[in-house]
Design a protein around this nucleic acid. Structure first.
Lengths: 112, 112
DNA sequence: TGAGATACCTGGAAGGGCGAGGTAAACTGA
DNA sequence: TCAGTTTACCTCGCCCTTCCAGGTATCTCA
């Protein structure tokens, strides 16, 4: 117990990565910070989460990687493929389904 | 792969069980169906999920169990303890935090 | 008698997040 | 110049949880 972002995180990193990459190509380290930003600091993902997700998605054909040297440093930029786009849509729907289910359960303080 | 309720489920069963028991005592089998109901069929939890959660929460002191014979069958009714109540509140906040973070990330189609 | 619902339970597989740790280059300020 | 921070990549192993499949027994209804 006592993780930084407790429960409710399964599948979330993948969804966030997909969502961010749908806006344009990014590299791993950049994603780590972007996640913090776009979630309003609500969610922080370490590199130990981001990189494995990136690699799994690439292996899966959802992302395409491209190495690029910037300032003498090497960055690996990722882009969404068509498959990744579909996956994002599917996951987005699942998220909506699950979260609205949970919210329905939480917000029924009175009625039977 | 190919679960009934894919991703986004970690911690959810526990939260739902806690939330339902906050309304009054229930037994395992009843919870299985109640979850389906209160989530508007969005989430279905099998007995193989509910019972382990119940046992873990009881071991943890969040629930108290009470055996009761009904119709010749034995039912185990669970009630929230004060500790369980606190846990529900904490988990509820975490849920809110994570889900609003995800929603913030999803709903920014245009602005940077 | 037999199917189906009720009611409990467990075990093992699988998946995934997370922290810790490791490398290396570039930049910053003292 | 040199130490510390930031950038940027990566992997390993722990741990927790969900899920399916399976198992037991009783009651009801046809």
């Amino acid at each position: 117990m006592s993780q930084t972002n407790p429960p409710f995180m399964s599948g979330v990193p993948e969804l966030l990565v997909l969502r961010l990459l749908a806006r344009g190509e990014m590299y791993g380290y950049e994603l780590v910070k972007a996640v913090r930003l776009v979630t309003g600091e609500a969610i922080a993902l370490g590199e130990g989460v981001i990189y494995p997700v990136l690699h799994a998605l690439e292996r899966n054909g959802a992302l395409k990687a491209r190495r690029k040297a910037v300032n003498g440093r090497t960055r690996v930029y990722y882009t969404l493929t068509a498959k990744g786009q579909r996956r994002l849509e599917r996951l987005g729907q699942e998220w909506k389904r699950v979260s609205s289910g949970v919210n329905a359960a939480l917000g029924d303080a009175e009625h039977a």
